[in-house]
């Protein structure tokens, strides 16, 4: 088991290193270089050289990459040349907003998706099941940002039930500001979770041990919600890790549409400014969070299933 956990963490590290290197290389592979791109039309040879030096771009590429990793490990993501502030600090100040949004999105999609999947699986091919199935596919397919825009238009602008912009003050205020963005990032995952739970629930319901449990007179409630759900829920755990990762990327839209602070808003502004250190830093942080989330869900999944736990 320990070996598996270590292996999984090792793989995660390799992937993060590869991803960051790839990104770094990409930035340098493009014609022109970050300094020129950043400076735009103002670029003069002196200014470019100056910026090169400040960003460490005058050294050979491998040295740059290694020193970049060295700095990252010591918590230094470089300096934002526009605001003259450390990138790490800027990112850390907005991370909580994004994490709260992702957490809220996952929470409500779990809270609705799992019961929906269980409900459908217990009434296969009923009209409720069919409607839930179509809705699930629709939720998955519809782009979240269009859903977000419609929600903004209907609930905030037209009906005025929810605030249009900002992160909110105080607990109640923050919660109020969270509703529509969380709805936006979570909707697709309601569909995913409902489908996965339904499918795995149906699969487990057909297994022999279910009939065995019923033959021993266990109440329906116990059979369904303890004996079956405990197995059927496992694939959902894996998907939650992926869901968190995908939401980290989905938040860009939610944060812009609802004018909420966070990593998405940050990178949006950074891209408009062509602020490379900030872009690199944000991508690095989100990629790391993504990989950590999927790795954790894999490990949790292994821990939950005694059959896998044993084999590892």
């Amino acid at each position: 088991m320990l070996v598996y956990v270590l292996k999984r963490i090792g793989l995660a590290l390799v992937i993060i290193i590869l991803a960051v290197t790839l990104l770094y290389l990409m930035i340098h592979a493009v014609p022109g270089d970050p300094a020129t791109v950043m400076l735009g039309p103002r670029a003069t040879p002196e200014l470019i050289a100056q910026l090169h030096q400040r960003m460490g771009l005058d050294k050979p590429l491998p040295v740059q990459i290694i020193s970049f990793f060295g700095r990252v490990l010591s918590g230094d993501l470089g300096t934002d040349v526009f605001q003259e502030k450390p990138v790490a600090g800027i990112i850390i100040s907005v991370v909580p907003y994004t994490l709260i949004l992702v957490g809220a999105g996952i929470a409500w999609s779990l809270a609705l998706g799992i019961p929906l999947g269980v409900f459908s699986a217990l009434r296969p091919d009923s009209w409720i099941d069919k409607v839930a199935g179509i809705l699930s596919v629709a939720f998955i397919a519809m782009p979240a940002f269009v859903v977000g825009l419609y929600a903004l238009l209907l609930f905030a602008v037209t009906l005025g039930w929810f605030p249009v912009i900002g992160g909110g003050e105080g607990f109640a205020g923050q919660l109020h500001h969270l509703v529509l963005p969380a709805f936006t990032v979570g909707l697709g995952w309601v569909g995913y979770l409902a489908r996965i739970v339904r499918a795995s629930m149906l699969e487990v319901l057909a297994e022999n041990h279910v009939r065995h449990a019923r033959a021993h007179g266990l109440p329906q409630r116990v059979v369904h919600y303890q004996y079956v759900l405990r197995i059927a829920i496992l694939p959902a755990v894996t998907i939650v890790g992926i869901g968190i990762g995908a939401m980290l990327s989905g938040v860009v839209f939610a944060e812009i549409i609802f004018a909420r602070p966070g990593l998405g808003k940050l990178i949006f502004v950074a891209v408009q400014q062509r602020n490379f250190p900030l872009i690199m830093g944000t991508v690095l942080v989100t990629t790391t969070l993504f990989v950590v989330a999927t790795t954790l869900s894999d490990i949790v999944n292994a821990l939950l299933d005694p059959r896998i736990r044993e084999r590892l």
Partner: peptide
């Protein structure tokens, strides 16, 4: 079921719940 009439199944390999401990299953009945 499981009280007045009890049953042993054809396939012992798949008739117990794989993620619940044997003790718990014996207690649950």
């Amino acid at each position: 079921r499981g009280n007045e009439i009890s049953m042993i199944f054809q396939d012992p390999l798949t008739s117990l719940n794989p993620v619940i401990s044997v003790g718990q299953q014996l207690i649950d009945v």
